[in-house]
Simulated assay, not measured.
Amino acid sequence: MLRLRKKTYIPFTVLLILQSYIPSTLFLMLGIIELSLYIIFVLKGKIPINIIPGFNILILFLLWGAVLGLINFNANGIAIRDYVRDIFYYSSPLIFMPIGMIYGKMNIEKSEF
C-alpha cells in the first residue's frame, strides 16, 4: 500500500473519476480553471512557454485548423455548431496535457519510473 501512495497523485485521480460523472464541457471548464489558478498562484502569472516539448506546435496546429475551418465554413456553408464542436474536441487535450505534466513533475521522482 505504501508503494501505491508514492506513485498515485490524489488530485489527478479525482480528475479521472470526475470525468465519468460530469459533462465534458464542465470538465473542460474545470481544467481551464485549474490551469489558470496554477499559472496565477504558483507561477506568479508567468505563462510557461514550453511546458511540454513540442507543445507550441500543437497550439499552432489548433490555430491553423481554426483558420482553415473558418475558410471552409464560409465556402461550404457548414453549421457553426460543427465548427465550435471541432474546436472544443481539439482544444480539450491541449488543456489537460499541461495539467498532467505539472502533476507528473510535482511529486514523482525520475528514479521511480
Rank of each mutant, 00 (worst) to 15 (best):
L60T: 12
V14T: 06
I51Q: 05
S111R: 10
R5T: 15
L58C: 13
G54I: 07
L37Y: 06
S24Q: 14
I17Q: 12
F12G: 07
I108D: 05
S111F: 07
I17L: 14
L62I: 05
P23N: 14
D82F: 14
E112D: 04
L2F: 00
K105S: 13
W64F: 08
N56Y: 13
G54A: 05
Y38G: 01
S24Y: 12
M97G: 04
I95K: 01
V84A: 14
L70F: 01
K7M: 14
K110R: 08
L62H: 06
N50T: 10
L4N: 07
Y9L: 12
L26W: 13
R85W: 13
P53K: 10
P53F: 05
L68G: 02
P93F: 10
N107H: 06
Y89N: 10
V14D: 03
K7S: 14
K7G: 12
L68A: 05
I49R: 11
K44S: 14
I87R: 03
L4V: 13
L35M: 06
Y90R: 04
N74A: 08
M1K: 05
L2T: 00
G54N: 05
E109G: 15
G69E: 00
L58S: 13
N72I: 03
I59V: 15
Y9R: 09
I57R: 11
M106T: 08
M97H: 04
Y103P: 02
E109D: 14
N72S: 09
Q19E: 15
I71A: 02
S91D: 08
R81P: 07
S24E: 14
D82R: 15
P98Y: 04
E109P: 09
K110D: 12
K44C: 11
I10S: 12
F88V: 11
R81D: 15
I51C: 02
G31M: 02
P23A: 10
E112V: 04
L63K: 07
I39D: 01
T8E: 08
E34D: 04
P93N: 08
P23L: 08
L70G: 02
